[in-house]
């Protein structure tokens, strides 16, 4: 039973739940809550993106596109057309999943840098459409979004959103951990390492890549929709190439093929610019330097590198004990 608690699955989920529950003790004002909500939303995107990049080994440099489509879809349907936000969110998510399904098939036939280019291109095209079709999207100025409401209940204020996003983050982590430990998840990890190795045991690699691409797009889209309602405003900046890069960086920084790594990456790299905001002019430079430094010194990302360190310490301890005994 105790071993069960210490497993990365259960133990990790409990630890994350504890952090989410206790964090408000140190969140002093609504600005802190605001940053925490942003961390949560980015973490949800990164968990999905990590399934695609970290586990299945398929890079995407265009996920801000899906995030943006989620945000703008909800914004337009709920604010322009007066749809109930939940219906807008569901319809948008479905549409984004469908889009990912349609474009995913040809794109995912590509490999390596060609795949990077294609996903980048997809993201840029989505960005251009959003910033050009100003009749719907408000163009570069953006568009304001009504608050999220379900029935008579209105979700407003950082504190309420904190708990909502916290709960959703736990669900996202739980779903991702489940998937990875399933035959489907093993198939994804297998095709990452050797596509023919996977195919000759009966795995349809193309189908699995497409599936995980759609799942990651859905994670991004839902986070985009929620983010739009939360902040009450969306601009094309959230759809831009740079945002795609930020998302990938969070995943790689936290550690590829580590769900908790994706959360940590999102937390650190969402908070860092806030800390740097005081040195506004240096922000971009420092951010770039941090990216380079992490990749050189912790090439596996923060969480796997630390986990490895921890493990080797523990086994060293065990050796010591064994020697004494």
């Amino acid at each position: 039973m105790l071993a069960h608690l210490a497993s990365p699955r259960t133990g990790g989920l409990l630890a994350l739940a504890a952090v989410i529950a206790l964090l408000p003790l140190v969140l002093r004002n609504s600005y802190f809550y605001d940053v925490a909500v942003l961390v949560g939303l980015n973490a949800i995107v990164c968990i999905g993106l990590n399934l695609l990049i970290g586990y299945a080994g398929q890079i995407s440099l265009g996920h801000a596109g899906f995030f943006g489509l989620g945000a703008y879809g909800s914004a337009i349907l709920a604010s322009r057309y007066g749809w109930p936000p939940l219906a807008a969110l569901l319809a948008t998510t479905f549409a984004v999943a469908l889009l990912a399904f349609i474009v995913g098939r040809p794109i995912l036939r590509l490999r390596g840098h060609y795949l990077a280019m294609a996903t980048l291109g997809l993201g840029v095209i989505i960005f251009m459409v959003i910033s050009t079709e100003d009749k719907f999207t408000g163009g570069p100025d953006g568009i304001s979004v009504v608050p999220f409401r379900i029935g008579g209940f209105v979700l407003q204020g950082e504190r309420i959103w904190y708990w909502v996003v916290g709960a959703l983050l736990l669900v996202a982590v739980w779903l991702a951990l489940n998937l990875i430990e399933s035959p489907t998840g093993r198939a994804l990890r297998a095709l990452h390492s050797s596509e023919v190795g996977a195919e000759v045991v009966g795995i349809n690699a193309a189908e699995h890549k497409l599936m995980v691409f759609v799942i990651s797009a859905v994670f991004a889209s839902v986070a985009g929709s929620l983010g739009a309602h939360y902040s009450g405003f969306v601009t094309p900046a959230k759809v831009a190439f740079l945002h795609s890069i930020e998302l990938v960086t969070m995943v790689v920084f936290g550690g590829l093929a580590s769900t908790f790594g994706a959360v940590v990456g999102a937390a650190v790299l969402t908070t860092l610019p806030q800390l740097l905001a005081t040195f506004e002019d240096y922000e971009m430079m420092v951010f770039g330097a941090v990216m380079i430094g992490t990749m050189i010194f912790l090439p596996r990302g923060v969480v796997p590198s630390l986990a490895r360190l921890f493990r080797s310490h523990r086994s060293a301890d065990a050796d010591n004990k064994a020697n004494k005994a």
């Binding site: 779903l175 489940n178 998937l179 399933s182 035959p183 489907t184 998840g185 093993r186 198939a187 297998a190 996977a198 045991v201 009966g202 795995i203 599936m211």
Partner: peptide
């Protein structure tokens, strides 16, 4: 992974 064909499950059941 070799057992994939005999273990295969729906996406929902996996998630």
């Amino acid at each position: 992974v070799g057992r994939y064909m005999h273990e295969r499950c729906g996406l929902m059941s996996a998630l």
